[in-house]
């Protein structure tokens, strides 16, 4: 799980072009949206694509994302429980 969380931080920074943020800046419980990393709705869609592409998880209902994408911690837990690759 620890390795996955580090992997997620690295991927999110790369995929979402968070140029001025380093892995060390992101805590496991930091909110990804709002005051945390400040991600927006397009970023949320990009995260849904990332779940599908890298972990074989298809989110049928985008509303699910609200709980899954709360933080690195919640993303990691969801991916661990649902990944198909």
């Amino acid at each position: 799980m620890e390795a996955l969380k580090q992997e997620l931080k690295s991927k999110i920074i790369e995929v979402l072009n968070l140029e001025d943020i380093n892995i060390e800046d992101v805590n496991d419980d930091d909110p990804l949206f709002g005051d945390g990393l400040g991600l927006d709705s397009i970023d949320a869609l990009e995260l849904i694509v990332m779940l599908d592409k890298d972990y074989g998880i298809k989110l049928v209902d985008p509303k699910e994302g609200k709980d899954i994408f709360q933080s690195i911690e919640t993303m990691g837990a969801y991916i661990t429980a649902n990944r198909t690759k």
């Binding site: 072009n17 397009i42 970023d43 869609l45 990009e46 694509v49 592409k53």
Partner: peptide, 8 residues
Amino acid sequence: GSYYPSPA
């Protein structure tokens, strides 16, 4: 085989 359109 690798159909992942990027919203961004």
